[in-house]
Design a protein around this nucleic acid. Structure first.
Lengths: 405, 405
DNA sequence: GAGTTTAAATTTAGACACTAAATCAAATGG
DNA sequence: CCATTTGATTTAGTGTCTAAATTTAAACTC
């Protein structure tokens, strides 16, 4: 029952894949380039390319020859067909849904976001997700048939097979038929993954963690989740609970599931209640006692001591989590991302001061620059990985390439 | 520079490997069995087997036919040649070296252990290691030339490429030329790995963690190290420091690098110094104030309250580490192994009582049954993995198979 | 502009590995 | 002894690759 054995056709499949892989991250190439890159013969390379063109994954560039020498017969130029289809990357959060449409090399072609109505039930949320997706596709000018895969980030534990884990008490109920009901008619492959894990994929792909194969990303906002990359691979653990530090019991109380935003609000509100003199009061205004995290960061930036004290407490808390991460996983870099990443730079001095006190081998710490799109970006990467792994089994339904024999 | 492409010969290599893999963990097989298992044609299967026999990895069984039907032409029977060579698994600890000799299916063929002289320098320790290895090989009745690979477990951080990491301040200095100088003359491939990581490999292979792909093994003795297996793969982190919780700062002081044995001794000594009435005193005897961990466990087994209190403190401490492991890595099972594993069962009640208090999703906890050989067993597994990955590139120098055409 | 040079593409011959089907081989059983 | 059964081997055919010879398409040269 093993069926790992090979036939001559498998050979071709291997070479098709090898050539396609090279072309994907090298742009336009000539046959000679591919010989150099793959070690195959010219005859084979050309045959493989023709094969890929017939399948729609590669197109031939007409027109002027490439740079370099001008002598000799002009080389045919082949290019990975980035518009042989597209993928969708979704961030389905508690309150909002964000959709990115990307071409097969990752170019963003469209985007849309929408808030869920607070009264929506499961069907209502599905409708919102479908509508937002359609808007993003419309912006990209692509039909539904162009979509080859969909990656979705959720604020819940997802195991390594893409199944939502029951029994891990994370935030809300996310098992709302995203795979089964939502896009049934289109037959899209839908891949689910934890949002923090996708944040890690995103940072590893095109963020400050690019090229760092041992990476942890703390997705900090209302919640606190961690995405862990070891040797370039995501860690899930037996139930997809790896990195779900939401339930971590820390030294300084306050509750257990709190992300940065929630902490800032909590301590900010407390400071106001105690009647401390602070800029936070002026920023919040007279109308409400609700302190948003933004105001605390803003006040701290203006040298307000109460706000700065709050940031220090948050920073020490983060440093504690980072030191534990460093001890158990020894990442090279820890990236802070999520809703508060815009202001998180203010936490860095405290964190960097605290870390060496907690561990002898502190990791580097950086703040994400992907902003709100961090999870959706990772979702795109997840979908692309699926397409890359299954390219030869999929049928590209591209935007207008002839399907000649 | 990619060279991932394939030639027709690579096809054969793939099939050789597939067949060899099947035969390795299925015992003697007929051609028909292999057809079933691999999906290849009879002609191919036989050709591949003949090829493997010529290379020395497989031998043909003469004599009576296998069970089952007695009709028809008797099938040739092929078997993975477990004595086409052997591997060595070493546990090079602070005070002792342990060597296992194993055949290619993991059968233990010889073993030896020796204490290092306390005054030995690097060369002296190398001599001890070489002598112990020779004794183990002699017990197995195998020549040096039979060794195909050597796995070595060290109490120090080793990165995923098998290099000892400088700058991670673990116990002692282990970079004593094990790869470069020790067995230079034999040309053995020497693979280094952290001891706790090997303990995890060992448990996953043939311990209580057999078949559990998300596994953590706490190697607890004088030191405390953790080996982490996620999805069946070892985690190293960027510097091989993953799981090195030795430097973890815990709540209840006492120092940071302490394993179970050291803690038991420390607290036991303290109790005696305070003059508490305890059985430990009787067990230690009048001659020395040195309390070994064994006495504490023994006293606790005899219902001594002071000793039991010490075990509770140790248990709570372990539970704390396990809960953190569970939070960050979400293993299915945590195994306690190492020097104290014999007595560690006494800690289980405390740990299991404490865990649910610390985390909502506690992992299962078990005690290793591999005893002193836990690291060396993992080292054997490491060496076997190397041989399996490189079988077709290696030359089996087996114990007496004819080298036909 | 005809011939030369150059680099790329294609063709051809040969090798290797596989499948499928026919044939050969070695046992059992009436 | 011969049919039956099962496994091994051979043969013919196909797919894939390499290596070398040949063809093609441009630029360069005189």
């Amino acid at each position: 029952m093993d069926k790992t054995a090979s036939t001559p056709q498998a050979l071709r499949r291997t070479n098709l894949k090898a050539v396609l892989e090279v072309m994907r991250d090298a742009g336009a190439m000539t046959g000679t380039d591919l010989i150099e890159a793959t070690g195959l013969t010219r005859a084979t390379v050309i045959a493989v390319c023709d094969d890929l063109i017939r399948r729609g994954w590669v197109r031939e560039l007409e027109g002027e020859r490439s740079s370099g020498t001008q002598k000799g017969r002009p080389a045919r130029r082949f290019e990975f067909n980035a518009s042989a289809g597209c993928v969708l990357g979704l961030d389905v959060g508690l309150a909002t849904v964000t959709v990115l449409v990307a071409g097969l090399t990752g170019q963003i072609l469209g985007r849309a976001a929408e808030r869920f109505s607070k009264t929506a039930d499961e069907a209502g949320r599905r409708t919102t997700i479908a509508r937002t997706t359609d808007r993003a596709l419309a912006e990209a000018g692509l039909p539904h048939s162009a979509v080859l895969a969909v990656g979705i980030g959720l604020s819940t534990a997802v195991d390594r097979h893409g199944n939502i884990t029951k029994g891990l008490q994370l935030s809300e109920h996310f098992d709302i038929g995203l795979q089964t009901e939502l896009w049934q008619e289109h037959g899209w492959p839908v891949l689910l993954e934890n949002d923090a894990n996708l944040a890690a994929l995103g940072e590893h792909w095109c963020g400050v963690g690019a090229g760092v194969d041992d990476l942890a990303v703390m997705l900090a906002g209302e919640r606190l989740g961690t995405g862990l990359l070891e040797s370039g691979r995501l860690l899930h653990g037996s139930n997809g609970g790896a990195g779900e530090v939401g339930t971590l019991e820390l030294v300084d109380g306050v509750g257990s599931q709190d992300g940065i935003a929630r902490l800032a609000r909590h301590w900010g509100t407390a400071a106001l209640a105690e009647g401390k003199p602070t800029l936070i009061r002026d920023l919040v205004g007279p109308h409400t006692a609700r302190v948003s995290a933004r105001f605390v960061f803003e006040a701290a930036a203006k040298d307000d001591p109460v706000a700065q004290e709050i940031l220090e407490r948050i920073g020490r808390r983060m440093a504690r989590v980072i030191s534990l991460l460093g001890t158990f996983l020894n990442p090279e870099l820890v990236v802070i991302g999520g809703a508060v990443s815009a202001s998180a730079t203010a936490l860095l001095p405290t964190i960097n001061a605290e870390l060496p006190r907690l561990t002898g081998t502190p990791p580097r710490v950086a703040v994400s620059e992907l902003g709100d799109a961090i999870v959706a970006t990772g979702a795109v990467r997840l979908a692309l990985a699926y397409v890359e792994d299954n390219a030869l089994a999929l049928t590209p339904a591209g935007a207008g390439q002839g399907a000649g024999l």
